[in-house]
């Protein structure tokens, strides 16, 4: 589907879902701060940073290997929370990036996070390191940093592909506590096998809300939940209709169901 006009019901649905999310965001901003459930892996961030500080070793962050997109930005906002914890503990952090634009945004994000925590002097040039744009060259670079800097806590959030296991396994071998989350579902099993805590699926998107407890972000999460329920409803209607259709042949009811299913279908 390239344009909305190919199927108005789908694009109408997209608009409806968007409005639900925006509506929940606005209502949360007006003071109806919602509740969200516990996300286990994320409570470990402070613990990991704290332990790294006790050991006198730095914290590593990798915001995935894609360019500046929504996933990477989301990873950076999780890292701004991590960086604040690092600054509070007075530790040092290293972030490796694969994209020059991300490098720029990441530097700003870390600098702001340190300033927020009242320790702007802790941020140094070279804390955010652009390595290269090539996937596996980047992977060797990250492995090198993990080993040579004796990293004690490693955070992998963002879009990861095959190299995820290199980061996670090398981190495991240097004894770092690792917390990870990715939107690439195919990599989750490897992160689970090698990391201490893994957030799964859209827990990744819920992470920044969960960590910051910011009403805007919490509102957005609640909006997303309502959208999920709505979609689940559509699926149930669709399933019931298609199943009934295999039982009922002909007649006005079948005709009605046919129209409904055709309406719901997307080419």
């Amino acid at each position: 589907m390239q344009h909305a006009s190919e199927n108005w019901w789908v694009s109408g649905l997209v608009v409806l879902l968007s409005l639900i999310i925006i509506g929940k965001v606005l209502s949360a901003q007006r003071g109806r701060v919602p509740f969200i459930r516990r996300i286990p892996g994320l409570n470990a961030i402070d613990e990991a940073v704290g332990r790294a500080t006790e050991m006198g070793r730095p914290v590593m962050m990798v915001p995935g290997i894609s360019g500046l997109d929504v996933v990477t930005l989301q990873a950076l906002s999780i890292f701004s929370y991590v960086a604040r914890a690092v600054a509070r503990f007075g530790n040092k952090s290293i972030m490796a990036t694969i994209d020059p634009i991300v490098t720029g945004v990441a530097e700003e994000t870390l600098r702001d996070a340190y300033a927020d925590a009242g320790r702007p002097e802790l941020f140094e040039e070279g804390d955010v390191r652009y390595l290269t744009g090539q996937q596996f060259a980047f992977a060797t670079g990250v492995a090198g940093i993990l080993i040579r800097e004796k990293v004690a806590a490693s955070f992998l959030f963002g879009a990861f592909y095959a190299e995820s296991l290199i980061f996670a396994e090398v981190g495991q071998q240097v004894g770092a506590i690792q917390v990870a989350g990715t939107t690439q579902t195919n990599q989750i099993p490897f992160l689970i096998a090698a990391c201490d805590y893994v957030v799964i699926g859209d827990e990744f998107y819920a992470a920044s809300a969960y960590l910051s407890r910011d009403p805007t972000l919490l509102g957005s999460i609640v909006g997303q939940d309502y959208c999920k329920l709505l979609l689940l409803g559509i699926i149930l209607i669709g399933i019931i209709s298609t199943s009934l259709l295999t039982l009922i042949h002909g007649g006005p009811v079948a005709h009605l169901l046919h129209t409904l299913v055709d309406f719901l279908k997307v080419k």
């Binding site: 694009s11 559509i234 699926i235 399933i239 259709l245 295999t246 299913v261 719901l264 997307v266």
Partner: peptide
């Protein structure tokens, strides 16, 4: 719309139909 919605409608009848 292009990538996700077809997955929703494909769930109506995962193996062609329920019956």
């Amino acid at each position: 719309s292009a990538r996700f919605m077809p997955q929703v409608t494909r769930s109506f009848a995962p193996n062609k139909s329920l019956i």
